[in-house]
Computed example of a mutant assay.
Amino acid sequence: MITMDDIIRDGHPSLRKTASEVQLPPSDEDKQILSSLLDYVMNSQDPVIAEKYGLRPGIGLAAPQINVLKRMIAVHVQDDKGTLLSYALFNPRIVSHSVEKAYLTAGEGCLSVDEPYPSFVPRYARVTIKGFNLDGTELKLRLKGLSAIVFQHEIDHLNGIMFYDHIDKNNPHKPIENAIAIER
């Protein structure tokens, strides 16, 4: 089971490296790592389990955040309609995206970043993701709103990009033109 002690913090060199593709079909070890990423985000959202194990709530986690430089992410989040999206993916990639942007009005957070970064982080409003689930089956997901933002945030981790890299340093609350503001 992954705990907060397993999650590396901002400044660790692995967070700035590009993760390697996972060999498919995935090994048992890779399946176990990916499964444990999903277990963390699910457990962190359960108040009883989170308190018992001292887990900070999260809705996504990428393998580089536990110092494993492989292209694996887990997301457990409700979409705009209240549908639970719970995915553990090998080699996820954005295959298409909207021109239109979106951002979270409350800003983004990260399990690897302890301090808050109140700011607007521009993201694509809609994305199509392809990746492989735990069984090695290819999935294609069309996402919008919060779920699109979460997947972009986690895929950025696979490329050594942190969410605050997208922020306008001179004016972090500068309105993002023609973007959808998402309340959370």
Score class of each variant (00 low, 15 high):
K52A: 10
G54N: 08
G60K: 07
D46Y: 09
I66H: 07
P57L: 14
R56K: 12
Y53S: 01
Q45H: 04
R56C: 04
P64Y: 10
E51K: 15
G60E: 06
G54W: 08
I49A: 06
D46V: 07
Q45F: 07
N43S: 14
V48L: 10
R56W: 01
G58W: 02
L69T: 05
I49G: 04
A50Y: 13
D46N: 15
D46H: 05
I59G: 03
E51N: 08
M42A: 14
K52N: 05
V41Q: 06
A62Q: 08
R56Y: 13
N67K: 06
G54A: 06
P47C: 11
P64E: 10
P64F: 06
Y53K: 11
D46T: 05
V41G: 07
S44H: 13
L69P: 03
G60N: 02
G54L: 01
L69S: 15
R56I: 13
Y53P: 01
V48Y: 07
P57H: 07
V41A: 04
V41D: 06
P64K: 07
E51R: 11
P57Y: 12
Y40H: 01
Y40C: 03
K52L: 15
I59C: 14
I66C: 00
G60F: 03
M42I: 15
L61D: 02
I66G: 06
P47M: 06
Q65F: 11
V48F: 02
A63H: 14
A62P: 12
Q45N: 12
Y40T: 08
I49F: 03
V41E: 03
L55T: 01
G54D: 01
D46Q: 01
I66R: 09
G54M: 05
V41C: 08
N43W: 09
R56F: 02
Y53T: 00
G58H: 07
G58K: 03
Y53V: 02
M42D: 08
L69D: 09
I49D: 01
L69I: 04
Y40G: 11
P47G: 15
A63L: 06
L61C: 14
L61M: 11
V41N: 10
G54R: 01
L55M: 04
V41S: 00
Q65K: 10
G60M: 05
Q45C: 02
K52C: 08
A62R: 10
I49N: 01
L61T: 11
N67Q: 02
M42N: 06
L69E: 15
D46M: 09
A50V: 13
P57S: 12
P47A: 03
G58E: 07
P57D: 06
L55S: 12
K52D: 00
Y40W: 03
P57M: 05
Y40P: 08
I59N: 12
V48P: 00
V41T: 10
Q45T: 03
E51W: 00
G54Q: 08
L61S: 12
N67H: 08
R56G: 05
Q45S: 05
L69F: 06
E51Y: 00
P47E: 12
A63K: 07
N43C: 06
N67R: 15
Y40L: 08
N43Y: 11
P64Q: 10
P47I: 13
G58Q: 07
N43G: 00
P57E: 04
L69H: 12
P57I: 09
K52H: 02
N67V: 03
S44D: 05
L61A: 03
Y40I: 01
V68K: 13
L55F: 14
M42P: 01
L55I: 06
R56A: 11
L55V: 00
G54C: 02
